[in-house]
């Protein structure tokens, strides 16, 4: 029962399947009206047209807003697309030269490393904190509901607003973070959170964790609600302590939700842009540059659109790979439930 409800969240796969089912049902329905053999053949043709009519808008939408931009981006990555190209509409094809240029860019290796650190760090702590909070809020206590909804605030605030607030908080000289840390004597001189090449990546990761915790908490809390209470009761009767109950009931039964949260979180984190842009613009000296901000920098600051397209493609490939992992994971879950 429970396992089936979770893959329902898998919108793409689920939608296709439901669509097919509805189509088949509709076909039967029309066939019954159509009558005998000749009528049946004609009706099948008719259903084809009708089906096409219903699918066409979706396909046109996907083609215009997803396929075309993606294809254009792939094409652009093989072109020397400069400022002049915008006026003349001409951009010569240069083969793999853009890819070579990005590969050899002195900032590229560090940017990939930053992206990995940022993503893994964010995911690990977002998930950890989200799970801890979800388990915590399962207990009932006064004002628990209020507290839980307050924790959603980071998620509800526009990222530019929270980013700007964090920029002030993390200011080296007058920021409240350094003031507070110095008041309690944890540090004896201000940490240049956003102004040092060695700390800036950590700072943007910390803020991104803060942004991502509510998402993890909400989904995991939902998953926890689906675990039947009698399992815990039975385990408690058998003498299992809190840790064993968590280890042997909560974690295994939460696994499908975990897969969803982590893959979605990964894709969301890979494409994080606003947090970094508001806090550090990828600086100082590219020290908090990730692939997304790097792509923006290449395209819209350096105006080398071909290079930007290369990084964009790279991001898409990574995201698609993990999207497949995600679809795979949710499909497995459904398969097991059906068996």
């Amino acid at each position: 029962m429970m396992a089936e409800t979770i893959p329902g969240a898998a919108a793409p796969a689920g939608a296709v399947r439901v669509g097919r089912r509805v189509g088949r049902r509709a076909g039967l329905h029309v066939g019954r009206h159509g009558g005998r053999s000749a009528g049946a053949r004609r009706s099948r043709g008719g259903t084809g047209w009708a089906a096409f009519g219903f699918i066409a808008p979706a396909w046109l939408y996907v083609a215009a807003f997803y396929v075309y931009p993606l294809a254009a981006n792939v094409r652009m990555s093989f072109q020397d697309y400069t400022v002049t190209s915008f006026f003349t509409g001409r951009a010569p094809f240069v083969g793999w030269r853009n890819y070579e240029a990005v590969w050899q860019d002195p900032a590229f290796a560090a940017t990939v490393a930053n992206t990995v650190l940022f993503t893994v760090g964010s995911l690990l702590f977002q998930f950890g904190a989200g799970l801890a909070l979800a388990v915590f809020f399962q207990r009932r206590f006064p004002l628990g509901g209020l507290l839980r909804s307050l924790l959603l605030v980071p998620w509800l605030l526009p990222l530019v607003v929270s980013g700007t607030a964090w920029r002030w908080i993390m200011e080296t000289d007058s920021g409240v973070l350094n003031q507070a840390l110095m008041q309690v004597h944890l540090i004896d001189r201000p940490i240049p959170w956003l102004a040092s090449t060695s700390v800036s990546l950590l700072s943007v990761t910390l803020v991104n964790i803060w942004v991502g915790v509510p998402f993890n908490m909400v989904i995991l809390y939902g998953g926890l609600q689906g675990i039947p209470a009698h399992l815990y009761e039975a385990a408690a009767l058998d003498g299992a302590g809190a840790w064993r109950r968590f280890r042997h009931i909560t974690l295994p039964l939460l696994r499908p939700v975990t897969a969803v949260v982590l893959t979605l979180g990964l894709i969301y984190t890979l494409k994080v842009f606003d947090v970094i842009m508001v806090l550090t613009q990828g600086g100082p000296a590219d020290s908090s540059q990730t692939l997304t901000t790097f792509a923006y920098d290449l395209s819209f600051q350096r105006l080398t659109f071909g290079h930007g397209a290369v990084v964009g493609n790279l991001l898409i490939v990574v995201a698609v790979v993990f999207a497949f992992v995600y679809l795979r994971a949710t499909r497995d879950g459904e398969g097991r439930a059906a068996a």
């Binding site: 029309v30 009206h33 159509g34 009528g39 004609r42 009706s43 008719g46 259903t47 047209w49 009708a50 096409f52 009519g53 219903f54 066409a56 808008p57 046109l60």
Partner: peptide, 28 residues
């Protein structure tokens, strides 16, 4: 589309035709 006769199919076809026409118009 010209072969439409008085069958209940007409509705479905008309719907399809309208959809296609609408999409074409939008694109245009």
């Amino acid at each position: 589309m010209t072969r439409i006769s008085g069958t209940p199919l007409r509705t479905a076809r008309r719907a399809a035709a309208v959809t296609v026409a609408a999409v074409t118009a939008l694109t245009a």
